[in-house]
Amino acid sequence: MKQPVKIVEVSLQPGDFHFGDADTRIRTLLGSCVAITMWHPTRRIGGMCHYMLPGSLPPSDRLDGRYADEAMDLFCRAAQRHHTRLQDYQIKLFGGGNMFPELSEKPSVAERNVAAAYQLMARYNLHLCAQDLGRNGYRTVIFDIASGHVWVRYQCLTG
Score class of each variant (00 low, 15 high):
M1C: 04
K2S: 14
K2V: 14
K2R: 13
Q3M: 12
P4F: 08
I7R: 04
V8Y: 01
E9W: 04
Q13F: 13
D16N: 09
F17H: 00
F17N: 00
H18P: 06
H18M: 01
F19W: 15
F19D: 07
F19S: 01
D23I: 01
T24K: 07
R27S: 13
T28V: 12
L29R: 10
L30E: 15
G31Y: 12
H40M: 00
P41M: 00
P41A: 04
T42P: 00
R43D: 01
G46E: 07
C49F: 05
H50E: 12
M52K: 03
L53Q: 15
G55H: 06
S56W: 11
L57A: 06
P58F: 02
P59Q: 13
S60E: 15
D61L: 04
L63E: 11
A68P: 04
D69P: 10
M72W: 01
R77P: 06
A78H: 13
A78V: 13
A79V: 03
A79I: 01
A79M: 10
R81Q: 13
H82K: 03
H83V: 06
H83Q: 09
T84G: 03
R85H: 14
Q87S: 07
D88S: 05
I91Y: 02
K92S: 15
L93A: 05
L93K: 07
G95Q: 15
G96P: 10
G96N: 13
N98E: 12
M99G: 05
P101A: 09
E102F: 01
E105R: 05
K106W: 13
K106V: 03
K106Q: 13
P107N: 11
S108Y: 07
V109T: 07
A110E: 14
A110C: 12
E111D: 15
N113P: 11
A116C: 13
Q119R: 05
A122T: 12
A122M: 07
A122P: 14
Y124Q: 09
Y124K: 06
N125H: 04
C129Q: 09
C129V: 09
A130S: 05
Q131C: 06
D132Y: 12
L133Q: 15
G134A: 06
N136C: 14
V141G: 06
V141L: 03
D144T: 04
D144W: 04
D144F: 05
I145S: 03
I145R: 07
S147P: 04
H149A: 03
W151E: 05
R153C: 15
C156S: 13
L157E: 05
